[in-house]
Design a protein around this nucleic acid. Structure first.
Lengths: 300, 300
DNA sequence: AAACTGTTTTTTCCCGATAAAAGACATTAA
DNA sequence: TTAATGTCTTTTATCGGGAAAAAACAGTTT
C-alpha cells in the first residue's frame, strides 16, 4: 500500500454532486478540467459510476440513470490528503496543550502515532517549517518554538507591514482593473452576512481570508502573497480554538471590513491607512487574547 | 547504500586541522561539541586516526603521533551534504541558461541526472520553494518561475522594507547590548579589507552577509531574520555568476557599509535611513544588471 | 560524584520499489 | 479535421528497509 487514492475519492464525491444538476455528463477532458484531475482519474470515476448503476456509459454517451444516494459517497475522512491528515494531527497536539516551547519533535514517533510513513512526516515538517513554529537542528531533531505571544507579535508585525503596503498599492490600481468588481462583490457578501449574522457568523473566517488575499494580491509581490499562507494557517486554527464571543468578534470585524472597503473605494490613502490600521489592530488583539499565557519562565 | 557518511568525513577533516595545534586531543564529549557532531561520530574519527597512525588512543589518552599529510584528508567533494550537492546542481542548471520561466521540473529526471534518490530531490524542492523561484502544481509537477527581473524587484522590495525597519530597531538597542561590540569588530574588518582590496576583494561577500545578518537580527522578528536566507542564497549565486567589475563593486559597497555603520553608531535615525537606502539601492542595481534580460514575450 | 569511556538503542537520512495519478500517443467518431 | 475515446508510458506520492549518526544507558576512572 504505497499511495492512497484520495484524489479519486474526493473527485468522485464532487462528481456525484454534479449528477444532481444534469441528465448527462460532459466529455472526459471537460470533466477533468471541472474536477481538477486527469483523465485517468475521470475514467476511474466513470467506471465506478457505471458499476454502481448511477450512469450508463458508452463512449460519449454518459446518461444519468438515478440520483446519488448518501451511501454512494465515499466517507469524508477518506478524501483527505495525507498532508492534511498530518497537519491536523500535528496541530491538535500543538494546541491541545502540553506542547511547551523547546520540546523536541520526533519524526518516527509522529509517524507511528498518525500511522503514516516517516517520509510523509519529514516532508510535512519541512513544509511546515516556513510558518516559524518549528526549527531544525542540523543532523538532528526538530525543535518546537511554540505558539507563543512572541510568535503572534512577530507574525502580526509583518502582517501589518505587508497589508498597509498592499492596501496602498490597491488604491493605485487603475479604474478598469477587475479587482474593483471583486471588491464590490465582496462588499455585497459582507452586507449579506451581516444581515444574517445570528445564524451564519461562522462563515466569516472564509470571507475574511478571501478579502485579505484580494488586498495582498495587489502588492504584486510573491513574498507578500505567500506570507498570507502563514497568517491563514494561524487564523484557521485560531478560529477553531477560540470560540469565545465568536459572533460578536465577527460582527465587529465585518463592520471594520466595510469601513476598510469604503476607504479603498474612495482611494483616499489617509482613510485607507486609518481603516487598515484599525482593523489589523483589533485582529491582533483577538489573536493575542486567545494565546494561553505561559507561566513566566523562571530564569532567562 | 542508504546514507553517505559525509558528516563523519567532514568532521574528520576538521579534526585533522586541530591536530596541528595540540599534542593531545580533549575528551570525546568536548571534541563532539567542538566539531558539532555526536560522540558516536567522534569515536569513528578517533578509531580511524588510530588506524592510520595519527594518534595513539587509549581511553582518555589521545596523543598526537604525527602531523597530518594532505592524503590523510578525505576529498572535499565527499564532505558535502546531499542537500548541498542537489542545490548546486539545480542552481547550475537554472543559471546556465536554457531555464525559461514556465518550464516544468521533473523530480525523477533531476534525481537521475544528479545520481540521487527521488526522496532527496523532493525534499530539496520543498525546502527550496520558499525562495519563490519554483512553485508546485497540486498532484503534479513543479514549475520554474525563473530568475527574472520581476523576481529581483520583488525580493529587493521586501529586503528594503525589512532592513529599514531592522536598522531603526538597531539604533534603539541599549548601549550595553553586545551588538555594538559586534558592530565595532565588523567595522574594523571592513577597514582592513578595504586596505587590501586589491587581493582580497572576493572575501567581501562573506563579510557582507555577516553585516546584514547582524542588522536583521536587531528586528527580533523570526520572519525578518529568516527572510535573509532568501537574500543570502540569491546573492551567493549572484556573486559566483556575475564577476564583472567585482573589485570595483565591492570597494563601493565597503564604503557604503562604513557610512552605514557610522550612521548606526550616531543613532541618528535620519542618517541611518539615508545610508541604508543608499546602500540597498546600489545593491539592487548590481543585482538587476546581472539578470539576463529575457526576450520580450511574444504575447501575453 | 563528576566527568569520562564503553555499549546499546533509537532516530535520522536516504534509497529502491510500487500503486495512484498524470500525461502522451494512437485510434476513432462526428 | 477537430475533438473525443482507448491504450500505453511516465511521473508523483508513499512505504518499508537499512546504514549513518545521535542519544541513552551502563560501567569506570579520577
Amino acid at each position: 500500500m504505497s499511495k492512497s487514492n484520495n484524489v479519486y475519492k474526493d473527485a468522485y464525491n464532487r462528481c456525484l454532486r454534479l449528477l444532481d444538476e444534469t441528465r448527462s455528463l460532459p466529455s472526459e477532458p471537460e470533466l477533468g478540467a471541472l474536477l481538477g484531475v486527469s483523465r485517468t482519474t475521470v475514467r476511474s470515476i466513470l467506471a465506478r459510476m457505471e458499476e454502481t448503476g448511477l450512469i450508463a456509459w458508452n463512449k460519449r454517451a454518459k446518461t444519468v440513470l438515478r440520483d446519488p444516494r448518501s451511501d454512494d459517497f465515499f466517507p469524508e475522512e477518506e478524501t483527505d490528503t495525507l498532508a492534511e491528515i498530518i497537519e491536523r494531527s500535528f496541530m491538535r497536539r500543538l494546541l491541545a496543550g502540553g506542547a511547551e516551547a523547546g520540546m523536541q519533535i520526533n519524526e518516527l514517533e509522529l509517524a507511528r502515532e498518525i500511522g503514516v510513513g516517516t517520509t510523509s512526516v519529514r516532508e510535512f515538517l519541512i513544509r511546515f517549517s516556513r510558518f516559524g513554529l518549528i526549527e531544525k537542528r542540523r543532523n538532528s531533531h526538530w525543535v518546537l518554538k511554540g505558539f507563543t505571544r512572541a510568535f503572534a507579535l512577530e507574525l502580526t508585525e509583518i502582517r501589518e507591514m505587508f497589508e498597509l503596503r498592499s492596501a496602498a498599492a490597491f488604491t493605485a490600481l487603475p479604474q478598469d482593473s477587475p479587482v474593483w468588481g471583486d471588491l464590490d462583490r465582496l462588499e455585497e457578501e459582507h452586507r449579506l452576512l451581516r444581515r444574517e449574522i445570528a445564524t451564519r457568523f461562522n462563515e466569516f473566517s472564509e470571507l475574511d481570508e478571501r478579502f485579505h488575499r484580494l488586498i495582498h494580491r495587489a502588492s504584486h509581490n510573491r513574498f507578500i502573497v505567500d506570507f498570507y499562507d502563514v497568517i491563514a494557517m494561524i487564523f484557521h486554527y485560531h478560529y477553531q480554538w477560540n470560540k469565545a464571543q465568536e459572533r460578536e468578534r465577527n460582527e465587529v470585524a465585518i463592520g471594520e471590513h466595510l469601513t476598510y472597503i469604503e476607504a479603498l473605494k474612495s482611494r483616499d490613502l489617509g482613510k485607507v491607512d486609518a481603516a487598515c490600521r484599525k482593523h489589523l489592530k483589533s485582529a491582533r488583539q483577538t489573536l493575542l487574547t486567545s494565546i494561553p499565557e505561559s507561566r513566566p519562565s523562571q530564569k532567562s
